[in-house]
């Protein structure tokens, strides 16, 4: 198994795809970070200057201590992890369409071995992408935010953890979809459509039907919940007593409307990734490679 893992790792490092996707990922994370700080600053200035006292009373702290950067960071992670997901999606679909899968299967004890080795290597890549996202996001946010809006040390650690976790899970989900749909363009288009359009429409419909809790169990809803719930929790931990209605609004701002607790969200999404990978594995296992 160690041999196969090394082979899969070499496959990823001997072509330029890993950095070709990592660069836009870093740029996107940095851009979101900068925008988060600027928007947060604007919002806090507005709140402090006006008659938004009611909100400030609810939250129990003055606006300049609101850790608004947390919301932007949650959203930034959700968007940026699309890239590692695409990277994962090309793992198996790329080998199938380039027919390199023939040699891969000829040199592995079994197809299960080959797929598991691949999954392990992409988990590692998911973690690397996650760390890079957090690094550039952090640089962007710190450069444009007042210290009052930034999380404390524990908050940074927690955010880094969920960012890496989220990136790993998204990569795994991508690997599964790429095994299920043996066509690179098809797999990527489907993933983008689903994560950027289809599920957002679905969220709107579910909210309209007044069953927002369902959202937290959908793929995008649960992965957003992983980061969104952590950022809302961190925000609230530094605020006073907050009424439920306001909390719901905050969740929506963090992109985690209807989401479960962060750890439950993570488990739900892991379940989705597992289902998709099992499907892709079943398809690949019985496929005739001609």
């Amino acid at each position: 198994m160690g041999n196969l893992v090394q082979a899969e790792l070499r496959k990823t490092t001997t072509t330029g795809l890993w950095w070709g996707l990592l660069i836009p990922t870093a740029v996107l994370a940095l851009g979101w970070g900068l925008a988060t700080g600027l928007l947060g600053q604007f919002f806090v200035d507005f709140a402090a200057s006006g008659d938004v006292d009611e909100v400030s009373d609810f939250l129990g702290v003055t606006p300049d201590q609101w850790k608004v950067s947390l919301f932007g960071m949650a959203r930034a992670i959700n968007i940026s992890t699309i890239f590692p997901m695409i990277f994962g999606a090309m793992a198996i679909s790329g080998e199938l369409s380039r027919r390199t899968i023939t040699t891969t299967f000829l040199t592995a004890p079994s197809r299960v071995h080959a797929l598991l080795a691949k999954m392990l290597v992409y988990v590692l890549w998911g973690a690397i992408y996650g760390l890079v996202i957090m690094l550039f996001l952090g640089i962007g946010v710190v450069a444009t935010s007042d210290s009052g809006q930034l999380p404390d040390a524990g908050g940074w650690v927690m955010l880094t953890l969920v960012c890496v976790l989220s990136s790993i899970l998204m990569t795994m989900f991508g690997v599964g979809v790429g095994a299920l749909i043996p066509n690179v363009a098809g797999a990527i288009v489907l993933l983008l459509l689903y994560f950027l359009v289809i599920e957002n429409v679905l969220h709107g419909v579910l909210a309209y039907l007044e069953v927002p809790a369902v959202i937290g169990f959908l793929p995008n809803g649960s992965i957003n919940g992983l980061t969104g719930s952590v950022s809302v929790d961190l925000f609230l931990s530094s605020a006073g007593v907050v009424p439920t209605e306001i909390e719901d609004v905050l969740r929506a701002i963090a992109g985690a409307a209807g989401a479960q607790d962060w750890w439950l969200s993570g488990i739900v999404f892991l379940g989705w990734a597992g289902v998709v990978f099992a499907g892709g594995w079943a398809v690949t296992q019985s496929k005739d490679i001609t």
Binding site: L4, A7, R10, K11, R98, T103, T104, L106, T107
Partner: peptide, 29 residues
């Protein structure tokens, strides 16, 4: 045990010949 050359066998166009062989050298051990 068995080495095979098959028709329409794939190579990644962006990988060098040496790297291609190294990938599968590690897979075989």
């Amino acid at each position: 045990v068995v080495g095979a050359v098959l028709e329409a066998q794939g190579f990644h166009p962006a990988r060098s010949a040496r790297n291609h062989l190294r990938v599968y050298a590690s897979a075989i051990g």
